[in-house]
């Protein structure tokens, strides 16, 4: 037996940890692009802000984009609910609320992460300290995840937490692709342009996939391959298909445990079926942007259905 509020807390704790990690990766990408690209720095940070879904909030608060304030906004601004610091703050208060549903190790790693990041992000981060802080963020979330996977009983608590992780991750991957969808279109992308190579590299880097891409596909970046990798490849841990498979699996465990099937089960199943029956070429034909918008809204709908079916509120 599990309280609805506890399921909700587990779900959001994991959404926010996932989000923090993705933001850190995006900032890392921005940094990398800024160092290697000849293009306008403000443009590249604008696009990082967009990938993080923070561009509008940033503009309302700061106006024009400059690297230092973009980084500050994404890492530690308390007015930005999705800054890394606020993500950990929210993850930790959710964790504190549900600490009876967590193993001691998960809770202690979460609490330690929160303390360490609060200290590391207490002041604006100097540029030379940035790589260190970004790897701290990734390390802290890896420790929480490691403790979670290593110590949690595989029961409903585990399932609700995993649902949070994969719904957030699918949303993040879809958004990252959507911001860059135009560089993946056939008309604008011809193999060999160094600018495009950089853009594609930055997409892959922001999901930590620039190395594994080469294990699976050509050394040369091709739009269809990148779409295949990030959307359809069932073995790529941040692809939409991988997320959907995990969501379906975790929901199936819940269905079995409760002996009840809800609307969210059908939504998840058809989401996965849709991804399995399509190809990168289909997606490009249909329009990558339209496809991704559908994915994002389908994912949202699924999240709401889960919350309703399992009485989160």
């Amino acid at each position: 037996m599990l309280l609805g509020r506890t399921a909700n807390g587990l779900y959001w704790m994991h959404r926010y940890i996932e989000r923090a990690e993705n933001i850190a990766r995006l900032v890392d990408t921005g940094l990398h692009v800024a160092l290697t690209s000849s293009s306008d720095q403000a443009d590249s940070w604008e696009s990082v802000l967009q990938s993080a879904g923070a561009a509008v909030a940033f503009r309302n608060r700061h106006g024009d984009v400059d690297p230092a304030s973009a980084i500050n906004f994404m890492l530690r601004d308390t007015a930005n609910g999705s800054s890394v610091l606020q993500c950990f703050e929210t993850a930790r208060s959710n964790g504190r609320m549900v600490r009876t549903a967590l193993t001691r190790e998960v809770w202690e790693n979460l609490n330690t992460a929160w303390m360490n990041l609060k200290a590391a992000l207490a002041n604006p981060v100097e540029e030379k300290k940035l790589p260190e802080v970004l790897s701290l963020i990734k390390r802290e979330s890896a420790l929480i995840r490691g403790a979670f996977v290593g110590t949690m009983l595989r029961d409903e608590r585990f399932d609700f937490a995993r649902l949070g992780t994969f719904i957030e991750r699918a949303d993040n991957t879809a958004r990252i692709l959507d911001v860059k969808y135009y560089v993946l279109l056939p008309a604008t992308s011809w193999v060999g342009s160094s600018l495009d190579n950089q853009q594609w590299e930055s997409i892959l880097r922001s999901v930590s996939a620039h190395r594994s891409y080469r294990w699976v596909y050509d050394v040369q970046y091709k739009p269809a391959n990148i779409i295949d990798f990030l959307v359809l490849n069932p073995r790529m841990p941040r692809s939409l298909a991988f997320c959907a498979t995990n969501i379906v699996d975790n929901l199936a465990y819940l269905e079995r445990d409760y002996a009840t099937r809800h609307a969210c089960h059908d939504t998840a199943d058809s989401m996965l079926a849709g991804l399995k029956s399509t190809t990168a070429a289909d997606i490009i034909d249909r329009g990558l942007h339209e496809f991704l918008i559908d994915c994002i809204s389908g994912n949202n709908k699924l999240g709401n259905e889960i919350a309703e079916s399992y009485r989160f509120y």
Partner: peptide
């Protein structure tokens, strides 16, 4: 009764 993921208990 408390609201659980499977209804009120």
């Amino acid at each position: 009764a408390m609201r659980t993921t499977a209804g009120y208990k």
